[in-house]
Design a binder for these strands. Sequence first.
DNA 1: CTGAAAGCGCTTACAG
DNA 2: CTGAAAGCGCTTACAG
Lengths: 344, 344
Amino acid sequence: MTKIDDVARLAGVSPATVSRALRGLPTVSAATRSRVLAAAEQLQYAVSPSASRLAGGRTGTVAVVVPRITRWFFGVVVEAAEDFFHRAGYDLLLHNLGGREQNRQRVLHATHLHKRVDAIMLVATPLRATDVTALAALDLPGVTISSGTTVPGWPCVRIDDVAAARTATRHLLDLGHRRIAHISGDPDDELAFSAHLDRRRGHQEALRAAGLQPDPSLDVESSFDIAGGTRATEELLRRGDPPTAIFAACDEMAMGALTALRDAGLRVPQDVSVIGIDDHALSGVLGLSTIAQPAAEQGRLAAQLLLDPLCGRALDADVSKPDASVILDTRLVVRDSTAPARAN
Amino acid sequence: MTKIDDVARLAGVSPATVSRALRGLPTVSAATRSRVLAAAEQLQYAVSPSASRLAGGRTGTVAVVVPRITRWFFGVVVEAAEDFFHRAGYDLLLHNLGGREQNRQRVLHATHLHKRVDAIMLVATPLRATDVTALAALDLPGVTISSGTTVPGWPCVRIDDVAAARTATRHLLDLGHRRIAHISGDPDDELAFSAHLDRRRGHQEALRAAGLQPDPSLDVESSFDIAGGTRATEELLRRGDPPTAIFAACDEMAMGALTALRDAGLRVPQDVSVIGIDDHALSGVLGLSTIAQPAAEQGRLAAQLLLDPLCGRALDADVSKPDASVILDTRLVVRDSTAPARAN
DNA sequence: CTGAAAGCGCTTACAG
DNA sequence: CTGAAAGCGCTTACAG
């Protein structure tokens, strides 16, 4: 394969100058630059990433860690971030935890990401105190999305989960519901992220603000996906005296709830109202009411917060402080799965 | 940061021996190996990937190219492949084309992947003759999933799209339908993959086998996703004399069709039957009849076909020939979206 | 604006 | 089984 010396020879300059010209450094005369570019083109030269990284200390790569790429939110976040990274010339190293705690530990292990990437994006990845220490010791720029625990020096992009949940439950209360169930992720799951707890908190705050006591028998935990929503709802129905409304912690759980209710012969929204959080791509198809959150915007913004400093660009004043959380807006979307409680 | 010489000094051996011991080469005595391992552990040593790659010529990385990570099939394939790669010690470099032809060209450009990865996995990525030449010139192992064009020396994992489509349309015919529409991806889209055409072909074969002529007015092309399914169905209804059944080229398009039909006041399956291909995670929730294809299995198997030779493992006899297509089974799943045609 | 030299931190023949 | 030496292909001060 052709290397930098070949290009240097053909262009009649030193390898150092080829290196500078190809990277667009300003300290190269226009004439020299064009000769180098022509030579590189003619020889089909491509820099060796390994050699460049070893000599330069930059990898041009960002690690992205997500719990499950197959879940709506994470897919959208990764797509938006990937687009931003590639435009900026960065490669994306994907780490999908696949719901396995052991993968989380492997990825976050001090030595794994070291020297392998220039920056880290952690999406909804729970962090213990030791993880935070290890990440800080890596001394790499990073950003978190939807993270409960923050890493010193890393910005965090998120929504206000407590407020989003409050809005969801308040919508059901406004429709006259009083027996409102909540189904959500299993907090004993080591990969459970903070949104679970925040959303439950928002739900309970809304109940209390309406003068209601949260009823433990109306609060069921399961896995944070479609199947989990189905199981949680089945459990709810098994307990007798079913709720007139269900607030699911995410749209995928809400969709599972729809299945369970249908299989139980209950109609939505006539018998039971259902609302989720997300505005999943299929929520419209299903007529699911929800609290919409901007997933792509979170991915794009986090990528920008991560890369702008690396590329020497100035950040917007409001988001320029690392450690600063950027909180994006959510909005209630009412479709056909929520309706007034029947007077009985 | 600690480097290999530090470990060598502490263990009282040469750097070469440290390198061998850490990589588990057999030519190291047990005593030496354990001393090296202990020293490395004590110093928290991690090999520098860039240096190792430059000296050794291996990157330990696989490039995965998908059209859109947010679509069900690609998310599942990537998750399954990622799991296999990481277990084998390989990193995954993700390239999401995001529906942009320009991204496809950038990724496939001869120099882009060169020296950056040890192997390539192309998922449903259309290849022109020049691309195939460029990929072959890279001289890297590769594998394709759901690809119409094959790369010499690369195995391909797929389903029989023609047969899958035939089964879908035959199911509708068996229910007594005669006016069966087909909605599918836009073949003019430069990122359209071969499955579009194969599925249309299977559909038309089934019609002809039943003595019917494919009716162009019942064949609408749009984007290969939910929104495309909606638009295609709206167009279909606009043409008047609506079909009694719709075969969508994928479940996401079928879901879009469900929305359009509902918005038009048509009931599924009483007025119109709908079937897709995939068995998307939400098809069960929607009661969508479909032809199920094993997405995770395709990702896992392709990853294995790619890595086994690299890891020096022997392959199963039946799949050991590169260039060989491995064709996985599909199966008809009847739910609530298909019903007998009304006698009128 | 450009070049000569050193160095990035490993692995690989080669020799023993 | 182990070591000394060379080399992987760049980039970075440094000097001019």
